[in-house]
Simulated assay, not measured.
Amino acid sequence: MSALAGVFNASSSLFTMDFYSRFKPKASQAQLVWVGRAATVVMVIIGLLWIPVIQGGRGLYDYLQGIQAYLAPPIFVVFFFGVFMKRLNGPGCLATLITGFAMGLFRLAVDTPVKLMGTPYAEGSFLWVVNNIFFQYYSLLITVVCILVFIIVSYATPQPDYAKIGGLTFSTLTEEDRRATRATWSMRDVLLSILLVVIIISIYLYFTG
C-alpha cells in the first residue's frame, strides 16, 4: 500500500506542479491541493481500469518488466551517452526521448488489445510480428534506434555551449573536478562494489542453473 500511495502522490504532484501550475500560475494553495486530490482520484480509476490488461498477460511481474523494457531505453541512452560524449546536445536529447517513447508506446498500444481481449492479430501481419517480438529484443531495437537518433540529430544541429556543461561529462572535467571526485571514494568502496557484483552474479548463476 505504501508503494501505491507513493506512486499516486508522485503522479498527482507531477500533474499539479509541472502542468496545472504552469497553466494557472496564480492558482492558490487551496486550488493546487484540490487539483492534486482530483488527479489522485483519476489515477486510482485508471489503475482499476487497467487491471484486466495486466491479468491478460503473464502476471504483474512480467507486465512491469515489459513496461520498463519499452520506456527505459531512451532515458538510458540520453544519460549514458550524454555523460561520455560532449558533442551531444539538447535537440538530440529531445529527439531521442520522443522517438524512444513513441516506439515504446506503439508497442504497448499493439500489445494491449491482445492482452485485454485475448484475440491475436492475423498471423503474418505487421501487428502480429510486432506483438510477437520478445520484449527484450524490442527493447534492444529501441536502444539502437535511440542511439542513432541521438548522434545524428546532435551532429546535425549546433554544438552545445561547452562552458555550460563543464564538469558534467568526462571530456569537460577539469583537474579540480577529478580531484574532488577521487576524494569521494576509497579502495574500500571499490572492494565492496566488486564483492556486490560477485554476489549478484553468483545469485544469478545459482537460480539459472
Results as ranks from 00 to 15, higher is better:
A156V: 06
F126Q: 03
P158F: 06
L173M: 14
A163P: 02
Y61F: 12
F76W: 12
L94K: 06
I194A: 15
A10M: 10
I67G: 00
L195P: 01
T184F: 07
Y204G: 01
Y61P: 00
W34D: 05
S12C: 08
L192Y: 11
A163W: 04
S125T: 15
S21V: 00
V53N: 12
F106W: 06
A5G: 15
L32F: 02
A102V: 08
A38I: 14
M117Y: 14
G36M: 06
L64H: 05
S21R: 13
V41S: 03
S193G: 15
A10W: 03
T119M: 12
V149D: 04
R58D: 13
M103V: 01
S11D: 03
T112G: 05
F101S: 02
A3Y: 12
I194Q: 11
V110E: 01
L141Q: 04
S13E: 07
V44N: 01
L97P: 01
F135T: 03
T169E: 06
E123R: 11
P160L: 07
L105T: 02
L71I: 12
L49E: 07
A72M: 14
L168M: 14
L105Q: 03
T40E: 06
V129D: 09
L191M: 12
S125M: 03
C93W: 00
Q159N: 09
S186V: 07
